[in-house]
Amino acid sequence: MTRERAMVPRAEPRSYYGQPVLKQPVWSPEVPFYFFSGGLAGASAGLAFAAALSGNRELERRAWLNALIGLSVSPPLLVSDLGRPERFLNMLRMFKVTSPMSVGSWILAAYGAATSVAAGSELTGLFPVAGRAAKLPSALLGLPLATYTAGLLANTAVPVWHGARFTLPFVFAGGSAASAGAAATIATRPRHAGPARRLAVGGAAIAVGGALVMERSLGQVGEPYRKGAAGKLSRAAGTLSLAGAGLIATAGRRSRAAAIAGGAVLTVGIVAERWAVFRAGFQSAADPRYTVGPQRARVERGEAPGAARKACTNS
């Protein structure tokens, strides 16, 4: 006996009264702002370290200050997102590689310690030996600090996040580079800010281009980036990032005002990109089509056995 249903892929996945299969994330607005502040902090430490190597003292000091600012707002944002903030220290109760949030908490803790010493010493002149010793660890830990948040989102059942596990880290890496570059472009006199401008422009290009690649590679699952709040945020992120980067690239070297304006616009663009990714996850979890559709297709194409088995003896 043949069944039509098995032969022809359905246009519309079935559902239970349109109810979502997945739960909406419970994360609050603090979380996308932390994605931004953590990325800013992480990439700024790297920029400061690289600036020091090239002998650019002014850029180095400004970038350490930016790293310290990004760092100082991050833990409060994370703690306030918790359902039980008074238990935030339980985050360091264990170390689990299967949980990017666990690993990320340790990265942030270690980065926080290193950066407090490195940047604090740089800005106050106290404890110069410890300060010098802390700079390399701070710069190295800043790199995964900027990208683990992408892995944190990808390591869920939410289709638009999980399907982007190879692309989202590059969007966040580009966004972090753009954030650090923009902040340093704002804070540094133009004749010392060349590396910051190049980091801002290059980071913006990677962030915007990476988001396009991510959306394309997700196919149907990437639809939230074209619809609703996430769609608006995504378009705003692209426009503002490119406008800010364009201003920095064209006029940032000659005019301090243009550098500050371009850096500010780019910063808003990157914040919008974090928000677009965040909101897209909610839209993705809310619609059962995004969950059921790809799963049913996998089963019907024979790529996965699925979880349901009929009796093997029927005629």
Binding site: S54, P100, A146, G151, N155, H162, F170, H192, G202
Partner: peptide
Amino acid sequence: HVGQVWAGVLAGAAALGAGIAAAMIGGR
């Protein structure tokens, strides 16, 4: 897929490091 997730995170971090290094080319 957690191995793939970490591979993505590390590749992104490496790209960021390379990007920062590349930004230094061309002087201040």
